[in-house]
Design a binder for these strands. Structure first.
Lengths: 252, 252
DNA sequence: CGACAGGTTGACCGTTATCAAAGATCGTGG
DNA sequence: CCACGATCTTTGATAACGGTCAACCTGTCG
């Protein structure tokens, strides 16, 4: 079982920031906050108040400091983790030791599901990118909830479905598009997120973008410059990007 | 609604075999066969006999000839398709027109789910690779079944979960490994499937392997030769491959 | 037997990784 | 609040990897 205690049993190998000591601790009180936690998650927030309270009963909260691992590849899966505050990086390590950024979780997102319904062994790593607080539901408790409230299963089904679509789309892009195109599409999607306006802030470092897009920071740097010279975008200070030609980006 | 009729309303653009006329037709009879159909599918075969009969009630069967499309990107999703006999190629087309093979469905596999729980619009193409027979459950009927028998949702959850894991693993490979490595891992997994013995038959044409692995037939040809020269494998007649050094394959 | 898709081989070139080094930025502690 | 160090980012030079094009095989099927 991966309680906070055994999820931070060491430093992971490829991140040198450290200061990685384990200060996670459980909150046993504040029913109020727990309420909030349940109600911000799409998979639960459709339920009636009293059902949410029932869920809040079985939820435990944990804190993670920047750089700490919530779980690692090889860990036994034992809980569903819902982000209440902070950000979590989900990444994989290839046999050859290269890292690929899979996803970044923000408040309301959840993880840990894959292993829960499967082998029970995590294949990816989850690392807090900053001070982060998560709600956890243990495997057994989740099982009980799913049986009692089938609507939850349907919500998770919808979430899985959309993630699968997303993941397969991403795979297809890797298979068929070159870096420049993947980057262009990535930028276009960033704009979608921050709806309105033609400007946005990159949601992660260029290093992480490189990892996410399966390339190197050097190439990202060069390709962004190229896109700028071609008049598609404009790079501003503080990771701000202005899209000058969204149409064009999609056609690259 | 994508009944057999409107799923074969034309030839798709990039496959020249044709003889692509639409001969699909519905079977309204044979309760026996329908029984078999339900019982071979992992997501249903755990149910009691009478529940399976209930499902058989709402199932419709369709035939597709080689090359026909079950659905196409852009189609409105309206049903879950379960393969009873034959093989189905699921592939995506990039904006630039390149094709990526996502998966090959064999009897017992299902598809159409993604769109069912989401937007409702397919993003991929499904094409019969040979004479194929599918069972379909319409969107509404499936919804009813899921509400009535939550256990089905849990089964689908497990299936989604494993596909997600698989898809994310594949994405990570594209992001971090070169073609030679991806091919080596692919071969190793082929061997896993055909458990026992160190020999197997490639599950698809080399052209399709190339599409699946995001490369070209030329490169597959060359890399297979290279793996052979390095003593990892031996290519035999009729797409047979003998693995000489499984350990080595994993380390490439 | 002929047609045709699939497969192989060779020559070439474009894209992107790599290595190195310098410059910018961020967070931290004094 | 500034200074320091660490990390991130940029830029350049180089080379490997793999895509493309073209020609030629090969097996299969009518």
């Amino acid at each position: 079982m991966a309680t906070a205690k055994n999820t931070c049993d060491g430093h992971h190998r490829h991140h040198l920031t450290s200061a990685d000591s384990c200060h996670s601790h459980e909150h046993k009180d504040d029913g109020g906050l727990q309420d909030i936690c349940v109600s911000i998650v799409p998979i639960f927030n459709h339920l009636a108040k009293e059902q949410m309270n029932e869920i809040a009963e079985v939820i435990q909260h944990f804190d993670y400091k920047k750089g700490e691992n919530i779980y690692r590849a090889g860990d036994q899966s034992d809980a569903l983790y819902i982000v209440r505050r902070g950000k979590i990086r989900i990444y994989r390590l290839s046999d050859s030791g290269k890292e690929q950024l899979v996803r970044i979780l923000r408040p309301g997102d959840f993880t840990g599901e894959l292993a829960l319904f499967n082998e029970g062994i995590h294949e990816a790593y989850a690392e807090a990118m900053e001070e982060t607080n998560v709600c956890t539901i243990r495997r057994n408790d989740l099982q009980t909830l799913l049986n009692k409230y089938p609507a939850i299963a349907l919500k998770i089904l919808a979430e899985f479905s959309s993630r699968l679509e997303q993941s397969e789309k991403q795979t297809a892009r890797f298979a068929t598009e070159k870096v420049e195109t993947r980057l262009a599409l990535f930028l276009a999607e960033c704009l979608d997120d921050e709806h309105s306006s033609k400007e946005f802030v990159l949601p992660m470092s260029k290093k992480d973008i490189a990892s996410y897009l399966g390339t190197t920071p050097e190439t990202i740097s060069r390709k962004l410059l190229e896109l700028e010279e071609l008049g598609y975008i404009k790079q501003k200070a503080k990771k701000r990007i202005e899209i000058l030609d969204l149409e064009g980006l999609h056609l690259i």
